[in-house]
């Protein structure tokens, strides 16, 4: 390799040289992270392909909350290299973020949905599908 890819990030270059196999806990964390990525793929596809604001909110509200929680708990497990006091503290800190997102993400989704509904944004019905000239909403 003529050009060292990690030369711009010295911290990264140090950590990439030590190749250690993951512990079972870290392996479980990697599995959780990949599962969260799967749910985020669902969110991204839904945001593009759904025709209506409420269906898009369905994709974004659920998939975003669950994928964020899974990914954060996965990285909480990955960052536990040993079972020392500092690792436990870090794990509980990340779990605090997970709890916070578990409470706030559905709340903000609900507030947005409420605002849209009171602003006379009607859900898509069969009549809208039959009229091709209707404005897409």
């Amino acid at each position: 390799m003529s050009l060292d890819q990690t030369m711009f990030i010295p911290v990264l270059a140090e950590s990439l040289q030590t190749t250690s196999s993951p512990t079972p806990l870290q392996f479980f964390g990697i599995l959780l992270g990949l599962l969260g990525l799967f749910f985020f793929v669902g969110t991204a596809v839904g945001m593009i392909r759904f025709p209506d604001f409420y269906t898009r909110m369905h994709a974004a509200g659920k998939g975003d909350t669950l994928s964020t929680m899974l990914m954060l708990s996965g990285f909480g497990l990955v960052s536990m290299e040993d079972l020392s006091m500092g690792s436990w503290l870090l794990f509980f800190k990340i779990m605090g973020v997970v709890l916070f997102i578990f409470i706030t993400c559905p709340t903000s989704s609900h507030a947005l949905m409420r605002a849209a509904f009171e602003d006379d944004e009607m859900p898509m019905t069969e009549k809208d599908l039959k009229k091709p000239s209707a404005k897409k909403k």
């Binding site: 969110t43 945001m47 604001f53 975003d64 964020t68 989704s109 947005l112 849209a116 897409k136």
Partner: peptide
């Protein structure tokens, strides 16, 4: 099409930035 769509997408991106 609506401002709510934009705000929803901003919300999703903000949550993912924490990750």
């Amino acid at each position: 099409p609506t401002p709510f769509d934009r705000m929803l997408a901003v919300n999703v991106i903000g949550t993912k930035t924490a990750v």
